[in-house]
Design a protein around this nucleic acid. Structure first.
Length: 501
RNA sequence: CGGGGUGUAGCGCAGUCUGGCUAGCGCACCUGGUUUGGGACCAGGGGGUCGAAGGUUCGAAUCCUUUCACCCCGACCA
């Protein structure tokens, strides 16, 4: 049996495999601060590419970036009742503002604040207060703002990238004159997420609406994109909320229309976080480590020089340099191909595995023999074996090769999802689908169940012990009459059900 | 907040029950050598107040008391 880059394998212990992939790829690690991670250069490089991709799309759809405070006066949060209920218990609170030497040599907080500040778990409230100042007239609408920021949610259990106490994200906040326009914005931004996640992350998603129980606190409607990970669990990859007039009424965000009539604006908010990096890892990576889609890889090509002595070294490095220059002239998605030479004084095999584990899409191994024959030895991360190729031939086919890898990953992920999505019509079948063979050490099982259902408390109660949740009501589903598999009631609504992150 | 567990070198651990030579092992790291189209081998070396405080004892990583931190399982979740 071939040795794998990662121990254990996905099949042996999926959660542990996930941690080990992150470690082997040197993407992030736990910090001394409880629940908070340090994102290391390779992981942050991926995030920067995500930011760049999303930011461009936000601007193309008419949004502008701005920045709001990390701290929010506690009274701001209290205004919208549902919102308070949803977030209050996971807020970090700042109650003091100075430190003084304590009795036993430590430091103690000195000046209590008149009004405690919370560290933003999301910024609807503070942004709403500013919107109220900025919006007077229909001429001020629509107002379309995005913020790149960190937020804090005091979660009880954390996992690198998937759920950390502090995480990085973007949050879009918009205000509109009509409900229709705000609804359209909500759908537009969901489509932006779906486009980005499928075409740049190569992760197929289902666009849908959340059930009442899964809705954002304070929203009238929550849309999300849901992806299936390799352990067949669902991961919410982005959300877009239609907030109705809930926040504008609570915060008095009003405008005068052309007739001079005063009314409340309609708002939306939408966000995607560093959790996307977790989605990327769990969708594509294999038992040898991370696999990156070319569009997001910090390095798309790595050149590995192979030589035995000083004379060979000089010769090989020169060849590598010229190769690198040539590759940088090639463009992929309107950008120069990102390429590096790994010149470190390490053994060849070790170096090769280093880049395999980090998911670099293409490795080029260059030794004296290749120079002589004007060739390169090419390893694709999505294929098991390296193959020889003429240098000119390789250069000519490089953009296509990157595209092939990108598309291949998306296709493979899509097939995996199709394979584990089932239309289910009875509760017995549903229960069997989500019950592992081995209860003591559950194997990878289940997937997406596509079922008729009625969104009601009884349904939620039946689902609870199964640890399955309604992920969404797919937007593309047609309304076909059927019966709720949980309550037996007639319904035209179908949902995707899954275990989830 | 409930139930379980762990703190010994950068990482992973043994040693603790039954107190006793200079606190060990693997990986990683450094040096020298042999290697080199593939995660090398040999030799040498650096690195620890054994989570913290107090106690028992001739003697404590080991026994007692107190305390802190972290991890796993549940409830909460982008």
């Amino acid at each position: 049996m071939a040795k794998t880059g990662i121990t254990p394998t996905r099949a042996d212990d999926y959660p542990e495999w996930y941690q080990q992939v992150i470690k082997a790829a040197d993407m992030a690690e736990n910090s001394p601060v409880r629940g908070c991670m340090v994102i290391k250069p390779w992981g942050y490089g991926i995030w920067e590419n995500m930011q760049a991709g999303l930011d461009k799309m936000f601007k193309e759809t008419g949004h502008e970036n701005a920045y709001f405070p990390l701290f929010i006066p506690i009274s701001f949060l209290e205004k919208e009742a549902q919102h308070v209920e949803g977030f209050a218990k996971e807020c970090a609170v700042v109650t003091h503002h100075r430190l003084e030497p304590g009795p036993d040599g430590g430091l103690i907080p000195a000046g209590p604040l008149d009004e405690p500040l919370i560290v933003r778990p999301t910024s609807e409230t503070i942004i709403g207060v500013m919107f109220a100042k900025w919006i007077q007239s229909y001429r001020d609408l629509p107002l379309k703002i995005n913020q790149w920021a960190n937020v804090v949610r005091w979660e009880l259990r954390t996992r690198l990238f998937l759920r950390t106490t502090e995480f990085l994200w973007q949050e879009g906040h918009t205000a509109h004159a009509t409900a229709e326009e705000a609804q359209a914005e909500t759908h537009l931004m969901l489509d932006v997420y779906a486009d980005f996640i499928e075409n740049q992350m190569a992760v197929p998603v289902i666009r849908g609406e959340k059930t009442a129980g899964e809705r954002f606190p304070g929203a009238d409607k929550t849309l999300s994109v849901e992806a299936m990970m390799q352990d067949r669990k669902a991961l919410q990859a982005g959300t877009s909320h239609f907030l109705g007039q809930n926040f504008s009424r609570a915060q008095e965000i009003k405008f005068q229309d052309k007739n001079g009539t005063e009314s409340f604006v309609w708002t939306t908010s939408w966000g995607a976080s560093t959790r996307l990096v977790g989605a990327l890892i769990m969708t594509h990576s294999d038992d040898d480590g991370l696999v990156l889609p070319p569009r997001l890889a910090p390095q798309q090509v790595v050149i590995l020089p192979i030589f035995r002595n000083d004379q060979e070294e000089a010769q090989v490095l020169e060849y590598c340099q010229s190769l690198k220059q040539e590759i940088m002239q090639v463009r992929y998605h309107e950008q120069p191909v990102r390429v590096m030479i790994d010149q470190r004084d390490l053994r060849g095999g070790e170096k090769k595995w280093f880049h395999i584990k980090r998911g670099v899409p293409i490795r080029i191994e260059v030794g004296p023999r290749d120079i002589e024959s004007k060739s390169v030895f090419v390893g694709r991360r999505d294929q098991p074996k390296s193959v020889g190729s003429g240098r000119a031939e390789f250069m000519a086919g490089l953009p296509q090769m990157l595209s092939d890898i990108q598309n291949g990953l998306l296709e493979r992920a899509r097939q995996m999802r199709e394979q584990h999505t089932r239309v289910i019509t009875t509760l017995e079948e549903f229960t069997a689908f989500f019950t592992p063979q081995n209860l003591d050490r559950p194997e990878i099982h289940g997937g997406f169940a596509h079922c008729h259902f009625v969104d009601c408390p009884e349904t939620d109660e039946i689902l609870k012990p199964l640890k399955v949740t309604p992920r969404c009501i797919p937007l593309e589903d047609e309304k076909i009459p059927g019966h709720c598999i949980f309550t037996g009631r007639p319904t035209v609504t179908r949902g995707i059900f899954a275990k989830s992150y």
